[in-house]
Design a protein around this nucleic acid. Structure first.
Length: 795
DNA sequence: TAGCACCGGGTTTTT
DNA sequence: CCCGGTGCTA
């Protein structure tokens, strides 16, 4: 059995690629996950690659888990063939299990598969003590990972306590965001200060400096640090870098369009050992393999930058034309959706100027028309959607609730849908919103665990010191904190000193001593028991569970169930990770998303945001709330670049659907509780070809004109009578430069809506050249010079 | 120190 | 509407 069997040409080229760099441009539903898993199997099975030398980056933990599972099955199937000479499916379950566990021990356990954050958190647990900070800050292997809420409370404390600023004027949330942005650019406080404007910018840099110090004092890292520290470490320490470079001979990155600069730096450092990719040539037994689709880049708010994907050929490529290149493969055949759905998606995305031409070619039949419904308000919309789902479920015996999904722009939109689903007793699951690990009781127990491992973690200490109640109040805590600050030691060192407690604790001394005893007692267990057992012990010995039992309310009961679920999560972690320790469990908890913990196999309708739907597919998809200001979001309406991102998001939503797609919008929407707001239909609706849609497409003036201009770019496929194909379509005006114009970096252009800009990159060659242009006040734009309304400016 | 009542503000999207 | 934060009282 070959891992190349059953693949199309392009997929085979991708999977078979052995050494050197390869960019796989993979449209939605083109089998990229398949290409990735088969490639890993092929590397191990055919090229004899050592599993421990493979690093595979996925976008979610769930994707990582699924990839491991698929890989395990793939390799076990092959082993079945070579060991027993018979197909997998004919083996008795006992032997199937044996083979799988052997594959686990020898292969999947050794692989490093996960998100950037999870993988590099893991790397830091090996090497963080070798990190030399420019400001002398230090961390140890026992570091805590702070989530957004922890990070924000730290910032808030700095703003209000240390700097005594008014949190209304100097919002912690915005400040935290600014710091995160700086980190994602790879900036330290000095660089932020240098780039800052005005008093406010200087102050932000000051908060950033103090925030880093506070993190180090807590021996904690935030999400951004999990990427930034490894970059700095690999840059500064040749030995460490060379170790990881040799270790990971094969690097694979999925969803490459959503990597940011820091992540890109990491990839480069690992792959080329810090050398310039353009001159690096030591590819014997090594490869870098990235997969992505610029049209599905939807995380720029998190500093993702799809020009990185577009620049891959420049950095790593062989500098050949698209036709001749051996460092790029395009997967354009779509195996997921009906031709109708794909055509709609192609038509929509053609309205973006920032892209490189790529078409999804259907392999399936035409399918049903897309349905479009206008409703009075969000309640009527929910009812209409649920009605549709019920009709479909009743009429199609092969269709189950689990085949259906409702996608929306914002989490808040789930409520109306949930109410309707409850009314009709339809099982559903909401993905996103409040994470399991963000629940209060879960964070409390995890707080204990973090404190056990990392005594310097004052944020966690403060979280649990009086939970459940031990009579340790605000004044006591303030006194202890002051003492710790004066001595420059962690709060725990004060709390755990009986002398200090007796002199400072006052009436709380008893509670404090009790608390210390509890923590010290638990800490003794730390190294001779499992994570799940420790969770159980914390729950019981802290009195947390008994307090919940005493409370006796429904809510307390719910919390107790959640805690039981946490024990199960611990058990599951131990099962999946042979040598899994508490540090590893806490890291996985900190980095888990809600989607990771949701069981999608159950027969329930799935409700989630468009962002969470990336990478998934459903036979039936309902896309709701297609209204100006909601989708596209109001923050994108006056910014062309963000509007294009919203359009990509819509493209992602549409391409999730395999068979049927329902679109809806409401003419009125209630914001929160109170007043109704009239709503205008989304511009995206007017960009869909009429012939594909059942129901009236609302046309707004400007958008309709743009659509006319774009129609000639649509590729129509497999349709006998493309009624909307414009025989007399307006040809694009020849505003562009002469077709033969050769662009080079530094050229200046005038764009009809973005104004004047400068060419910063060129991509591709020959006829298929694209350029990146930096316009004032926005990120770089990728333009097709043959199509974009630009003119060269002579200098 | 803890519990309760009241107020005000917030909606993109997430590792 | 729902959360968290604040301030008052026992």
């Amino acid at each position: 059995m070959s891992f190349l069997a059953g693949l199309n040409d392009a997929q085979r080229r991708a999977v078979d690629h052995h050494e050197g760099p390869l960019l796989v441009v993979a449209g939605a539903g083109s089998g990229k996950t398949r290409a990735l898993t088969h490639r890993i199997a092929h590397l191990i099975g055919e090229h004899g690659a050592d599993p421990a030398q493979i690093l595979a980056v996925t976008f979610t933990n769930k994707a990582a888990r699924e990839m491991k599972e698929r890989l395990e099955l793939l390799l076990a199937q092959r082993l079945a063939q070579s060991q027993y000479g018979q197909p997998w499916s004919t083996l008795p379950p006992v032997e199937q299990r044996q083979l799988r566990s052997r594959i686990y021990r020898e292969v999947t356990k050794e692989l490093w598969i996960g998100t950037f954050h999870a993988l590099f958190a893991r790397m830091l647990r090996y090497d963080i003590d070798k990190f030399k900070d420019s400001e002398g800050l230090t961390w140890t292997k026992q570091f805590s990972i702070y989530d957004e809420a922890d990070a924000q409370s730290l910032v808030k404390e700095i703003v209000t306590q240390e700097l005594q600023l008014d949190p209304k004027r100097f919002e912690p949330k915005k400040t935290r965001w600014a710091i995160s942005n700086a980190k994602n650019q790879g900036w330290l406080p000095d660089q932020l200060e240098a780039n800052a404007e005005g008093q406010r910018g200087k102050l932000t840099a000051d908060v950033y400096r103090r925030y880093r110090k506070a993190l180090a004092a807590n021996n904690a890292l935030d999400f951004d640090d999990l990427l930034l520290l490894p970059v700095q470490l690999l840059q500064q320490n040749e030995q460490v870098r060379s170790y990881w470079h040799r270790r990971f001979a094969h690097v694979l990155v999925d969803e490459y369009q959503d990597t940011n600069r820091t992540q890109y730096e990491l990839i480069k450092l690992l792959v080329t050992d810090g050398k310039d990719p353009q001159v690096y040539n030591n590819w014997a037994g090594r490869s870098v393999f990235v997969v992505g689709d610029a049209d599905q880049s939807i995380y720029s708010f998190r500093a993702a930058d799809f020009t990185i994907l577009m620049g891959f050929q420049d950095d790593f490529g062989d500098q050949q034309s698209d036709e001749a290149t051996r460092t790029m493969v395009k997967l354009e055949e779509n195996y997921r959706s009906t031709a109708t759905i794909l055509e709609a998606a192609n038509a929509l995305i053609a309205n973006n100027s920032e892209r490189i031409d790529k078409v999804l070619r259907p392999t399936r039949g035409e399918g049903e028309l897309i349905s479009l419904t206008r409703c009075d308000d969000e309640i009527a919309e929910a009812e209409a959607v649920v009605h549709r789902l019920r009709m479909m479920e009743a009429a199609n015996p092969e269709l189950t609730w689990g085949d259906m999904a409702c996608l929306y722009r914002t989490n808040a939109q789930s409520r109306a849908l949930e109410e309707s689903l409850v009314r009709w007793r339809i099982p559903y699951v909401v993905v996103g919103g409040l994470r399991f690990y963000d629940r209060r009781e879960i964070k409390d127990v995890l707080g204990y665990l973090r404190l056990l491992i990392n005594p310097a973690d004052t944020v966690s200490l403060l979280r649990v010191i009086n939970v459940p109640k031990r009579g340790i109040g605000k004044t006591t805590i303030q006194r202890l904190t002051d003492a710790a600050n004066q001595l420059g030691i962690p709060l725990w060192d004060v709390v755990s000193d009986p002398e200090a407690v007796r002199s400072l604790g006052g009436r709380s001394a008893k509670g404090l001593l009790q608390f210390c005893e509890l923590i010290n007692g638990l800490r003794e267990q730390l190294h001779n028991t499992t994570p799940s057992d420790l969770i159980q012990q914390v729950m019981e010995r802290s009195g947390y569970v008994s307090e919940l039992i005493t409370e006796g309310t429904d809510e307390a009961e719910e919390r107790r169930r959640n805690l039981q679920e946490l024990v199960n999560a611990g058990l599951q972690y131990q099962e999946e990770n042979d040598e899994g320790d508490l540090e590893g469990f806490l890291a996985s908890a900190a980095l888990a998303s809600d989607a990771d913990s949701k069981d999608t196999a159950a027969d329930r309708v799935t409700l989630m945001t468009l962002h969470s739907s990336k990478g998934l597919e459903f036979p039936v998809v309902c896309l709701v709330g297609l209204e100006q200001g909601l989708f596209p979001s109001y923050r994108s309406l006056d910014d062309p670049a963000s509007l294009e991102e919203e359009r990509r998001l819509c493209y992602v939503g549409i391409t999730r659907a395999k068979e049927r797609l329902f679109l809806s919008h409401a003419s009125e929407r209630r914001l929160w509780g109170g007043m109704r707001e009239p709503a205008v239909p989304s511009v995206f609706l007017s960009e869909l070809p009429e012939a594909l849609v059942q129901g009236e497409i609302p046309r707004s003036g400007g958008a309709a004109i743009r659509r006319e201009q774009r129609l000639d770019r649509l590729t129509r496929v497999d349709r006998d009578q493309p009624s909307s194909a414009p025989a007399n379509a307006v040809r694009r005006r020849q505003a562009g430069p002469a077709p033969g114009k050769r662009w080079s970096v530094g050229d200046r252009v005038l764009h009809s809506s973005f104004g004047e800009g400068e060419v910063t990159h060129t991509f591709g060659s020959g006829e298929k050249v694209s350029i990146a242009v930096k316009f004032a006040g926005m990120g770089p734009k990728i333009l097709d010079p043959r199509l974009a309304p630009i003119e060269p400016i002579d200098r």
